[in-house]
Amino acid sequence: MGVNGKYSIGILLTFVLLAAAMLYSFPIITLITGIRGITADSFFISRIIIWIVLIIIFLYNMIIEKGPFLLKKETSYSTLFYGKAVLSLYFICIIGGAVLNAIILFFVPEKISDKLLNLVPVFKNNYFLIMVTCLTAAIVEEFLMRGYIQPRIEKIYNNPTLGIIISAVLFGILHSTYGTIGQVLGPFFIGIVFALFYKRYSNIKILIICHFMIDFISLMALNFIDIKHLSVF
């Protein structure tokens, strides 16, 4: 099998495993542990499952692809650049996402995601779970979506634009488990922004920090925001 074939299987494996982890982790956890519904314990276990997906793809890369996991060599920058880049990305994603969400709500009035409603009491004052959740999303999703999938699609088709668009589309689809249009298009928008940045600056660490920051501030806000305003997420 050629290199492109191995990359194609790796991309498919990554998406299928992530989708399965997000769609079926809670039923499997219930089957094995007897924990029903979304609780702090079941949510923590589901994050462990997502880490296992990352480990599997690392092993696939090491054993089958036998090459570097990150095809794009990491570029080093100054501390000042890190700060400016993280803040710029954060505000672009937050402001752009808010505008996009407002447009969606104007044309397609949506109810608040049932899954999000179920998560409110789970994260309420549970700062350990918030940290675990944010670190998991930031590290696993950035390594797999931007670090792994994006450059491999670019290599297969010799087309950077396809790498950016397809990785962002997959990123959006993976968030469809929340059950709303906004929870697909919002991550798609963030996926485009992050993919463009990664293509231009080749630094996964900045994306991890910014991704963590977006999720952490959002989840911390669940401790203070009135439930009727959850649609902003």
Rank of each mutant, 00 (worst) to 15 (best):
F107E: 01
Q183H: 14
C134L: 12
G163E: 02
L89S: 10
G83C: 03
C134K: 03
I217H: 03
I104Y: 03
I190W: 13
T39W: 05
S167P: 11
I139S: 09
Y178L: 03
I95A: 11
L144S: 10
N61Q: 11
N101E: 11
P27V: 11
N203F: 03
Y90C: 14
C210W: 00
M145L: 15
T79F: 15
L162P: 01
I217P: 00
I192P: 03
N125K: 09
F188Q: 06
I94G: 07
I173H: 04
K111H: 08
K199G: 00
L222C: 02
G97C: 05
E141D: 08
L87D: 08
P151D: 11
I206M: 15
N126W: 02
L119P: 02
L222H: 04
I52E: 03
M213P: 05
L170N: 03
I29E: 01
N101H: 12
T14W: 04
I95R: 06
S25E: 01
H229N: 14
L100D: 03
P27C: 04
Y60W: 13
N4F: 04
P160H: 05
S176T: 06
N61D: 14
A19F: 08
L12F: 12
I50D: 07
Y157G: 00
F81W: 09
Y148I: 06
N4P: 02
I49P: 00
S113R: 03
V140H: 12
H229S: 13
I112V: 10
F212S: 13
I112Y: 08
L222K: 07
I92R: 08
N126L: 00
Y178E: 05
F197T: 02
Q150L: 13
K115D: 00
F81V: 07
P109C: 09
A98S: 14
I164E: 00
A21L: 12
G10N: 02
R200M: 11
R146D: 09
A19Q: 01
T33H: 10
G67K: 14
V232A: 06
F171H: 01
N61G: 10
Q183T: 04
I209Q: 06
K155P: 05
G10Y: 05
I225E: 05
P151W: 10
Y90G: 12
G97E: 10
V193A: 02
V99F: 15
F15I: 06
I156C: 04
K72F: 04
I11Q: 08
S76G: 14
I52K: 08
N125E: 01
Q150T: 13
L117E: 06
L89V: 10
L71S: 04
L170W: 03
I63M: 15
P109H: 03
F26M: 14
V132C: 03
Y77Q: 05
G5C: 09
K205I: 08
I95H: 02
V122S: 07
R36K: 14
G179Q: 14
L105D: 13
I45C: 02
L144K: 04
M220E: 15
T39L: 10
C93R: 11
V108E: 13
G2N: 15
N101G: 03
N158K: 07
E65A: 10
Y201T: 06
A85H: 13
I164K: 13
S218F: 08
F197G: 04
G10T: 09
I55Y: 15
K205V: 15
F128T: 01
F69G: 11
L59S: 14
L174C: 08
K73Q: 07
R152E: 06
A21Y: 07
